[in-house]
Protein backbone atom coordinates (compact mmCIF):
# COMPACT_ATOMS: atom_id res chain seq x y z
CA UNK A 1 0.00 0.00 0.00
CA UNK A 2 1.27 3.46 -0.71
CA UNK A 3 1.80 5.91 2.11
CA UNK A 4 -1.13 8.04 0.96
CA UNK A 5 -3.53 5.08 1.08
CA UNK A 6 -2.28 3.46 4.29
CA UNK A 7 -2.54 6.75 6.14
CA UNK A 8 -6.15 7.22 5.07
CA UNK A 9 -7.13 8.40 8.57
CA UNK A 10 -5.18 11.60 7.92
CA UNK A 11 -7.28 12.28 4.83
CA UNK A 12 -10.44 11.87 6.88
CA UNK A 13 -8.99 14.20 9.51
CA UNK A 14 -8.19 16.85 6.95
CA UNK A 15 -11.61 16.49 5.32
CA UNK A 16 -13.46 16.87 8.63
CA UNK A 17 -11.26 19.79 9.62
CA UNK A 18 -11.81 21.73 6.43
CA UNK A 19 -15.51 20.86 6.18
CA UNK A 20 -16.12 21.94 9.77
CA UNK A 21 -14.25 25.19 9.35
CA UNK A 22 -16.10 25.89 6.09
CA UNK A 23 -19.48 25.44 7.78
CA UNK A 24 -18.47 27.85 10.56
CA UNK A 25 -17.50 30.50 8.03
CA UNK A 26 -20.14 29.98 5.34
CA UNK A 27 -23.35 29.47 7.36
CA UNK A 28 -25.31 32.33 8.83
CA UNK A 29 -27.43 30.17 11.12
CA UNK A 30 -25.97 30.24 14.61
CA UNK A 31 -26.82 26.59 15.36
CA UNK A 32 -25.34 25.40 12.07
CA UNK A 33 -22.18 27.33 12.87
CA UNK A 34 -21.92 25.40 16.14
CA UNK A 35 -22.40 22.12 14.29
CA UNK A 36 -19.51 23.09 12.04
CA UNK A 37 -17.44 23.98 15.06
CA UNK A 38 -18.13 20.57 16.58
CA UNK A 39 -17.11 18.77 13.38
CA UNK A 40 -13.95 20.85 13.31
CA UNK A 41 -13.14 19.83 16.89
CA UNK A 42 -13.96 16.19 16.15
CA UNK A 43 -11.28 16.11 13.45
CA UNK A 44 -8.72 16.79 16.18
CA UNK A 45 -9.87 13.75 18.14
CA UNK A 46 -9.05 11.61 15.12
CA UNK A 47 -5.73 13.38 14.60
CA UNK A 48 -4.68 12.32 18.11
CA UNK A 49 -6.26 8.88 18.35
CA UNK A 50 -5.35 7.34 14.98
CA UNK A 51 -1.54 7.50 15.29
CA UNK A 52 -1.73 6.01 18.80
CA UNK A 53 -2.88 2.69 17.37
CA UNK A 54 -0.22 0.26 16.21
CA UNK A 55 -1.30 -2.37 13.70
CA UNK A 56 -1.18 -5.64 15.66
CA UNK A 57 -0.71 -3.78 18.92
CA UNK A 58 -2.69 -4.69 22.04
CA UNK A 59 -3.94 -2.52 24.90
CA UNK A 60 -0.98 -1.61 27.11
CA UNK A 61 -1.39 -4.35 29.70
CA UNK A 62 1.73 -6.32 30.49
CA UNK A 63 1.18 -10.00 29.74
CA UNK A 64 3.05 -13.02 28.46
CA UNK A 65 3.38 -13.21 24.72
CA UNK A 66 2.48 -9.60 23.91
CA UNK A 67 5.27 -7.28 22.97
CA UNK A 68 3.54 -4.67 20.83
CA UNK A 69 1.41 -2.15 22.64
CA UNK A 70 -0.73 0.74 21.46
CA UNK A 71 -0.16 4.14 23.03
CA UNK A 72 -2.90 4.88 25.59
CA UNK A 73 -1.95 8.50 26.21
CA UNK A 74 -3.77 10.02 23.19
CA UNK A 75 -7.02 8.42 24.38
CA UNK A 76 -6.69 10.09 27.75
CA UNK A 77 -5.87 13.43 26.19
CA UNK A 78 -8.84 13.19 23.86
CA UNK A 79 -11.20 12.24 26.69
CA UNK A 80 -10.28 15.62 28.14
CA UNK A 81 -10.70 17.30 24.76
CA UNK A 82 -14.14 15.69 24.32
CA UNK A 83 -15.23 17.08 27.70
CA UNK A 84 -14.01 20.50 26.63
CA UNK A 85 -15.82 20.13 23.29
CA UNK A 86 -19.09 19.14 24.98
CA UNK A 87 -18.82 22.08 27.38
CA UNK A 88 -18.16 24.47 24.51
CA UNK A 89 -21.10 23.15 22.50
CA UNK A 90 -23.44 23.29 25.51
CA UNK A 91 -22.40 26.84 26.31
CA UNK A 92 -22.68 27.85 22.66
CA UNK A 93 -26.21 26.46 22.42
CA UNK A 94 -27.16 28.13 25.70
CA UNK A 95 -26.01 31.46 24.32
CA UNK A 96 -27.97 30.80 21.11
CA UNK A 97 -31.10 30.22 23.22
CA UNK A 98 -30.54 33.55 24.94
CA UNK A 99 -29.93 35.25 21.57
CA UNK A 100 -33.22 33.79 20.31
CA UNK A 101 -34.99 35.20 23.36
CA UNK A 102 -33.42 38.62 22.92
CA UNK A 103 -33.67 38.98 19.14
CA UNK A 104 -36.33 36.48 18.05
CA UNK A 105 -33.95 35.04 15.45
CA UNK A 106 -30.91 32.82 15.11
CA UNK A 107 -29.89 34.06 11.65
CA UNK A 108 -26.76 36.16 11.89
CA UNK A 109 -27.77 38.66 9.18
CA UNK A 110 -31.20 39.28 10.78
CA UNK A 111 -29.59 39.83 14.19
CA UNK A 112 -27.04 42.26 12.78
CA UNK A 113 -29.84 44.07 10.92
CA UNK A 114 -31.81 44.31 14.18
CA UNK A 115 -28.73 45.79 15.89
CA UNK A 116 -28.27 48.34 13.11
CA UNK A 117 -31.92 49.30 13.32
CA UNK A 118 -31.61 49.69 17.10
CA UNK A 119 -28.55 51.88 16.69
CA UNK A 120 -30.51 54.25 14.50
CA UNK A 121 -32.94 54.77 17.38
CA UNK A 122 -30.38 54.71 20.19
CA UNK A 123 -32.63 55.79 23.04
CA UNK A 124 -34.77 52.68 23.49
CA UNK A 125 -32.40 49.73 23.16
CA UNK A 126 -29.76 50.95 25.58
Amino acid sequence: MTAAASHYSYWITVLLMVAGLYIVIARGNLVKKLIGLSIFQTSVYLLYIAPGKLIGGTPPILAEGFRLYSNPLPHVLILTAIVVGVATLALGLAIVVRIREAYGSIEEDEILAADRAAERRPAESR
Binding site: L21, V24, L30, F40, L91, G92, I99
Partner: peptide
Protein backbone atom coordinates in the same frame (compact mmCIF):
# COMPACT_ATOMS: atom_id res chain seq x y z
CA UNK B 1 -24.85 37.87 23.77
CA UNK B 2 -23.82 38.07 20.14
CA UNK B 3 -20.34 39.29 21.12
CA UNK B 4 -19.97 36.32 23.47
CA UNK B 5 -21.15 33.97 20.71
CA UNK B 6 -18.68 35.39 18.20
CA UNK B 7 -15.90 35.21 20.77
CA UNK B 8 -16.88 31.60 21.54
CA UNK B 9 -16.65 30.59 17.88
CA UNK B 10 -13.36 32.38 17.21
CA UNK B 11 -11.88 31.43 20.59
CA UNK B 12 -12.72 27.77 20.04
CA UNK B 13 -11.17 27.86 16.56
Amino acid sequence: LLSAYQYLVLGTI
